[in-house]
Lab assay of single mutants.
Amino acid sequence: RRPMNAFMVWAKDERKRLAQQNPDLHNAELSKMLGKSWKALTLAEKRPFVEEAERLRVQHMQDHPNYK
């Protein structure tokens, strides 16, 4: 499986939080909310998630050198 990108790293915990706050929302609505929230973040706010995604990408390359 591919490593998570920055959005997916961020959305993993954010989706849980949103789902707890909005138990009646379907996954499609949660995804739309997550997309809008991600776009609203500044580059500085996204940076930790971008860095974690890069760390995961490098780790994935080391763990699976033949993955394409």
Rank of each mutant, 00 (worst) to 15 (best):
A19T: 11
F49W: 13
K36D: 10
H64D: 14
R2D: 13
F49T: 04
P48V: 06
R17E: 02
H26S: 15
S31Q: 09
G35V: 12
K68G: 08
R47L: 12
M33W: 01
H26P: 15
R1Q: 08
M8W: 11
K12H: 07
L43D: 15
Q59K: 09
R2F: 08
H64S: 14
F7K: 03
N5P: 01
R55F: 03
M4S: 07
V58L: 15
F7R: 05
M33I: 13
K46I: 01
L30Q: 04
Q20G: 10
W38I: 00
D13R: 05
N5I: 02
D63C: 02
P65D: 09
K32G: 09
N22G: 04
D63Q: 12
Q59M: 10
M8S: 13
R55L: 09
V58N: 15
L43I: 14
M4P: 06
E51A: 05
R17K: 14
M4V: 11
M4E: 11
H64K: 14
A44F: 07
V9Y: 03
M61W: 04
L34Q: 01
E52I: 03
L34A: 01
K36Q: 14
R17L: 05
F49H: 07
D24M: 10
P3K: 15
E52M: 07
K32P: 02
M4G: 09
A44K: 15
D13L: 08
K46S: 01
A44P: 08
L56Y: 03
M33S: 06
M33P: 02
F49M: 01
G35K: 15
Q62E: 13
F49Y: 14
H60F: 12
K36G: 08
S37A: 15
A40P: 01
R17F: 06
E45N: 03
A44D: 05
E52C: 04
N66L: 10
D13C: 03
M4A: 01
N66F: 06
G35C: 13
E54W: 04
R57H: 05
R57K: 13
W10V: 02
W10L: 00
Q59G: 09
H64E: 13
V9R: 02
N27K: 10
P48Y: 00
V9P: 01
T42S: 14
N27T: 07
Q21V: 06
K39H: 03
L56D: 06
A40V: 08
L18S: 01
R55I: 04
E52T: 07
N5H: 03
L41I: 03
L43M: 14
S31G: 14
S31I: 08
E29V: 08
Q59I: 14
K32I: 05
L18K: 02
G35Q: 15
A40K: 09
R15D: 00
Q20P: 00
M61N: 13
R17Q: 06
P23D: 00
N22R: 11
R2V: 07
R1D: 15
L25R: 07
N27A: 13
R2K: 04
R15H: 02
K12R: 10
R1N: 08
W38G: 03
N66M: 11
L41P: 01
M8Q: 14
F49R: 02
L34G: 00
V58S: 14
A53S: 07
R1T: 11
R17M: 07
S37I: 14
E29Y: 10
E45M: 13
L25Q: 01
R2G: 10
A6P: 09
K32Q: 08
R57S: 09
P3H: 12
L43Y: 05
L43C: 14
K68N: 12
A44L: 08
L34K: 00
K46M: 06
R57C: 07
L43F: 15
L43R: 11
Q62R: 09
F49E: 02
P48Q: 06
D13E: 15
P3Y: 09
D24F: 08
R47N: 03
L30D: 05
D13W: 01
Q62H: 15
E14L: 01
N66K: 13
Y67Q: 05
D13T: 09
Q59T: 14
Q21M: 04
W10Q: 03
Q59S: 12
K12A: 11
Q62L: 12
K68L: 13
Q62P: 12
M4D: 12
H26C: 12
N22Q: 06
R1M: 13
L18M: 09
R57Y: 07
V58I: 14
R1A: 11
L41E: 04
P65T: 09
N27I: 04
A19L: 15
L41N: 00
Y67S: 11
A53L: 02
K16Y: 07
K68V: 08
P23H: 03
L25K: 08
D24G: 12
V9H: 00
L56R: 08
H26M: 14
R17Y: 06
R47P: 01
Q59F: 06
M8I: 05
L30Y: 10
K46T: 02
K32F: 02
N5K: 04
P23F: 08
A19D: 03
V9M: 08
A53H: 02
Q62F: 09
M33V: 09
V50Y: 15
P48A: 02
H26V: 03
E54L: 06
A44T: 10
G35E: 15
E14H: 06
K12W: 00
L43Q: 11
H60D: 12
D63S: 13
E14G: 00
K32H: 00
L43T: 12
N22M: 09
D13I: 11
